[in-house]
Design a protein around this nucleic acid. Sequence first.
RNA 1: CGGGGCGUAGCGCAGUCUGGUAGCGCAUCUGGUUUGGGACCAGAGGGUCGCGUGUUCGAAUCACGCCGCCCCGACCA
Length: 499
Amino acid sequence: MADTAITPTREQNYPEWYQQVIIAADMAENSPVRGCMVIKPWGYAVWENMQGVLDRMFKDTGHVNAYFPLLIPLSFLEKEAAHVEGFAKECAVVTHHRLKGDGHGKLVPDGELEEPLIIRPTSETIIGHQFAKWVKSYRDLPILINQWCNVMRWEMRTRMFLRTAEFLWQEGHTVHATAKEAQAETLQMLDVYADFAEQYMAMPVIKGMKTSDERFPGAVDTYTIEALMQDRKALQAGTSHFLGQNFAKASEIKYLSSEGQEEFAWTTSWGVSTRLIGGLIMTHSDDNGFVAPPRIAPLHVVIIPIYRNDEEKAQVLEYVQSLAKELKQQNYSGSGLRVKIDDRDMRGGEKAWQYIKQGVPLRVEVGPRDMAKGEVFVGRRDKGPKEKASQARADFVAGVPHILQEIQDGLLAKAKKFRDDNIKRIHSLADFEAYFKGDDASAPGFAMVPWCEEGVGHDLLGKLKVTPRCIPLQQEPIQGNCIFSGKPATKWVLFAKSY
RNA sequence: CGGGGCGUAGCGCAGUCUGGUAGCGCAUCUGGUUUGGGACCAGAGGGUCGCGUGUUCGAAUCACGCCGCCCCGACCA
């Protein structure tokens, strides 16, 4: 056996390591359909936990859930000019509504549709169409809606979780009477995303506004949370868009104001996807596999009973069942502890390694010796696989919530330090080039660059495969000149190689 | 859509150059020995060799055509 559970290691081949972690943790696998993935129970459990927290946060900020159709009339996509440009090339199109036999055992499309339908790449157009009917008066506003669904974008190159042709997400869509209110909503949801990423996923993010080139097609302003992965590439982890009146005009969302004037409404949209799981994997996992932050881990504690014969088995199982019961009564992050006893007929070591690869925060091994002493033998996922220690059973049970929070905090602190250690302030084009040159496998991290706010176009960016990630909301005082134009700088801009 | 590579057991591969009745490792199942740690021994099950046509006494292997997938670009939540 290799000395790490995952081969290759991050150091040896990061992209391959990423794939292997997903397979070893049994989170997902490729499907027979190009670019699509099967999310297996362990991966889906992570998503369900993320959904649970986000859904509560959305509801706490006044949103309600609804559902809109998968299929959208093609003509809807044509309504907003920039939106057409942005999405037309990557849409799956439905042109027929049944199949017929060709007489040789094959099925061929039959029944051509008068108007083709597209599979939603995002739902602004169809939701806007419905909103137009729902909004008549200023009294109907605001509309604060979210939907959990799948969308499809026919991407050229895909990677599990990070970019798949079909992916799961939530998309929030809101309508407001004023620009100010819509802008406040956009920023509020960006904060929700940032809080979720940091407090639950232990993934530090930088909040900022996208530069015009990176904006969502059809948006006035796009805000983003940007995270740094362990290979020092950036990941756009969530976006929130102020759509101005662009979609309101395209879909004719109009209302009568309290002054009796007909006005176009102001809309927003915001989303995070299963891509976050990819970010989670690349933020915390190590050469032994996935590391699940306790607050969204499918299991908090796995108990592995150790025994030699049926008599011992009966005794140990009784002991661990009462242990599991006590643990489940403990509370962590708003719910009972998630605990499982694994009494499969397998060797203990093999089970232990499986849970290491799956990232379970705490492994408890209990055999006759522990039982006799009223102890448990505990391993933590944030420590080495063999760094395990005995502990009095009662102390352990009472202390688990505290240990879990310690692991959670440790993951965030470690990720934050890594992120902060890999942000560099750069004041000249030459330094910028020196920082970013090198192949894709050796991304250096984030660069903070002084900028004059007049576009960031430069040939160097394409050559270095570097993109502006965002204009951070939190700006520090700046002096000096824009590295692109040489004019006095007014803002710091964040650059990186990215996913 | 350009450039490269690959389709043989559930997974990973050898065999193809030089045509001769399909093999290895892992996984699975059975029996045994083990048992505080990703066990060991013995045995078993499992494949129209991507599809089609051709050459041949004989094709995984040669020829032609097709299909699919992966990697590198353009595109990207």
